[in-house]
């Protein structure tokens, strides 16, 4: 494991929060929400501009979450009250947010070098309490040395992402959570059980984009800048995480699926960092790599299933043939004994 791979895991865990948001809209609500490309940057922009102006980074991150929630609600309103097709509502919100994000930042890029971020604060906490040294020596004990200057990012983000996953699981089992899932599953049915599907759709999209904006705010602080173009293709990365995770880890229950989504996000980052090591691939090829990964995750399981099915049918046919052959043989023996007895 190299330090590049370590970085991939680190950022994968942060992106997992975004993937959970995409899972909420895409799978739970059955709403392919393209707002994500915009709301991710909104989260980053708000956190960055507030931090540059001296706001506490934790408070700045909270405000970023709130902004993401609002953006999602607007998409929900466009769809439910404005009766705009889900894809179109998302795209409209995405391009509207592009301008809004520029306004928030005032320019297209806000650097955060030498600024205080949630990560610098956590790192200070980890070193002062000796936690960092503790994790460092634990890693060294299993042969992982010189990977990183601090373990604080990985550990703290693992805790945060795990908490968000667990809260999501619990929420989806509450009375409101059940109604939300039913809204994505069978709108007509849940309306006949007196649930306001419009409100639930708006709420679901709000929560989804709140998570996306949180991921945006964290990524901005992690990579020390916010850029107006950092959200391009974010929805595909989210979908890639969901689809890869589901293909690898399965979808048996909600808890398994959310685990799969988190795992998928990390696997995706690792695959991308591996791909970028191939000599003729450049960082500009990232999006193409993403597209190929998603296509592979969608098509490969089908091919594998098809192959299994063919093998099963072949086996069945062979068995059938053997049965017929045996019966024929039995018949011939019977006939030969009969003719023998006649000849006698």
């Amino acid at each position: 494991m190299s330090s590049a791979m370590f970085g991939a895991v680190e950022s994968g865990i942060i992106y997992a929060i975004m993937a959970l948001g995409v899972y909420l809209s895409f799978r739970i609500l059955d709403f392919p929400d393209l707002t994500v490309d915009g709301s991710f940057v909104t989260g980053a922009a708000i956190a960055a501009i507030l931090i540059v102006n001296g706001t506490n980074p934790f408070f700045a991150t909270l405000l970023a979450i709130a902004a993401g929630f609002l953006a999602g609600c607007v998409t929900g309103l466009l769809h439910t009250k404005g009766k705009i097709n889900p894809l179109l509502a998302g795209i409209l919100m995405m391009i509207a947010l592009y301008s809004i994000n520029l306004r928030i930042m005032g320019r297209s890029n806000v650097p955060l070098l030498n600024e205080e971020s949630v990560f610098t604060k956590i790192e200070v906490f980890f070193t002062s309490t000796g936690l960092d040294a503790l994790f460092g020596s634990m890693a060294a004990a299993i042969g992982l040395q010189n990977l990183t200057s601090t373990w604080s990012v990985l550990i703290s983000m693992l805790v945060v992402t795990a908490l968000i996953k667990i809260i999501t699981d619990l929420f989806l089992r509450t009375q409101i959570g059940l109604a939300l899932r039913a809204t994505g599953d069978n709108k007509r049915m849940i309306r006949s059980f007196s649930a306001n599907t419009d409100q639930l759709t708006i709420l679901g999209l709000g929560l989804s984009n709140a998570l996306v904006a949180l991921a945006g705010a964290l990524i901005a602080q992690y990579s020390s800048f916010a850029d107006v173009g950092m959200g391009i293709g974010m929805i595909i990365i989210g979908l890639a995480s969901v689809i890869i995770g589901e293909a690898i880890f399965g979808t048996k229950t909600i808890a398994v699926t959310t685990f799969a989504v988190v795992g998928g996000a990390i696997v995706y980052r690792i695959v991308v960092s591996l791909a970028l090591r191939v000599d003729f691939l450049e960082t500009g090829d990232m999006k193409l790599i993403t597209a190929v990964i998603v296509i592979a995750a969608l098509v490969l399981p089908q091919l594998i299933d098809g192959q299994k099915e063919r093998i099963r049918k072949k086996k069945k046919r062979l068995q059938q043939e053997m049965k017929i052959n045996e019966m024929k043989k039995g018949g011939e023996e019977y006939a030969s004994t009969k003719s023998n007895s006649q000849s006698i």
């Binding site: 899932r181 069978n186 649930a195």
Partner: peptide
């Protein structure tokens, strides 16, 4: 019914018909 949800979850949805849904 909601096909991707379990029997008990479907019944819970029905049970909450005339109640305010909470957390």
């Amino acid at each position: 019914t909601a096909p991707s949800m379990t029997i008990q979850e479907n019944l819970a949805l029905a049970y909450n018909r005339n109640r305010r849904r909470t957390l």
